[in-house]
Amino acid sequence: MKIRVPATSANLGPGFDSCGIALSLYLFIEVLGPNEKWEIIHDLGNDVPSDASNLMIETALSLAPNLTPQKIKMNSSVPLARGLGSSSSVIVAGIELANRLAHLNLSQQDKVEIATRIEGHPDNVAPAICGDFVVACYFPEKHKDDVSYVKHYFPEGDIIAFIPNKELLTVESREVLPKSFSYRDAVEASGIANVMIAALIKGNLPLAAKMMQEDRWHERYRQKFVPHLALIRQICQDEGAYGCFLSGAGPTVLILSPEEQTEKVMQSLRRIDDTARIEQLSIDREGIQVF
């Protein structure tokens, strides 16, 4: 059995903790067969456990404690701690591993709710499971573990990822966020998010990207961790891209661009940091797949 889980980008600017897209970078899992103990073969570095303490196995065992240990091969093109849902992809893979090996017959709704409970919010895990563009909300204190979500088609257009060669932990970037907003500021931020989502639904990528750059919820507070964001925003303006936004908590920045401007944008991005990984990506429409 093979499992493929896409990378994800959360927030899309003003869709904080709610909106996300699935992207064409992947975590691949291959179950090789029963083993005396859990063993994961990978080349992802010493920080990624190769035994039962791996997040994927911990997730699977939380759902099915009596699973027979397996030897598993893990490959991933999703960079760690870069704002592209690396931990979410592992959680989603663990849920599917338990689902298949223990014959749990989980629905998509079940998977989204379980993954959200583990991750804490649905913006990464929902698109990893469903694919494409997903808007979701989660209120555990009021509605148990219910997650409401809607999948929609993300408009066609080029997506460029600027992935710095440094990590940024989500917990660190969350500490700089304000504890509260004024009513007026919250209304403004909400209005921007609403227009962004409506523009995506209508297929108006230029307007959606404009709203993404007007985020009020988190980007202004996280800018000290991502000084390249302002430079990339200037490049977008100079080279005719639609706009850009922090991917999750960063430090990755995603740029939305018309096809005819993409190469110019990428050339300019390379001049910012020659150690950064710059890739042209596409939307993954399917979400998690099992082969």
Rank of each mutant, 00 (worst) to 15 (best):
M1E: 10
M1P: 15
R4A: 13
P6N: 05
A7N: 08
A10Y: 07
N11M: 05
D17T: 02
D17E: 11
C19E: 07
C19M: 12
I21H: 03
A22R: 06
A22M: 03
L23F: 11
L27K: 01
F28Q: 12
P34L: 09
I41P: 07
H42D: 10
L44K: 02
L44R: 05
G45N: 08
N46W: 07
D47L: 15
P49I: 12
S50N: 14
D51G: 10
N54G: 01
L55K: 08
M56Q: 05
I57V: 13
L61M: 11
L63I: 11
A64T: 07
N66D: 15
T68A: 07
T68E: 11
Q70W: 14
I72S: 04
L80D: 06
A81E: 06
G83F: 08
L84Y: 10
S86V: 13
S88A: 15
S89I: 13
V92Q: 01
V92A: 04
A93R: 06
A98V: 11
L101R: 06
L106F: 13
L106N: 09
S107R: 03
Q108C: 03
Q108M: 09
E113K: 04
A115H: 07
I118P: 06
I118H: 07
H121N: 06
P122N: 01
D132P: 04
V134H: 00
V135K: 03
A136Q: 02
A136N: 02
C137Y: 13
V147A: 03
V150W: 09
K151W: 00
H152Y: 11
F154H: 03
F154S: 03
E156P: 00
G157T: 12
D158K: 14
I159M: 07
I160K: 05
I160G: 08
N165I: 00
N165Y: 10
L177Q: 03
A189T: 08
A189G: 14
S190G: 13
G191F: 15
I192Q: 06
A193G: 09
I197A: 01
I201M: 10
N204C: 13
L205W: 00
A209P: 09
A209V: 11
Q213I: 03
W217M: 04
F225V: 01
H228D: 04
L231E: 15
I232G: 07
R233Q: 11
Q234W: 07
E239P: 00
Y242F: 12
G243H: 01
F245E: 02
L246D: 02
A249P: 02
G250D: 01
P251H: 04
P251W: 09
V253D: 02
I255S: 05
Q261K: 15
T262V: 13
K264N: 14
M266I: 14
S268H: 14
R270D: 05
R270T: 13
R277I: 14
L281R: 08
I283V: 10
Q289T: 14
V290W: 11
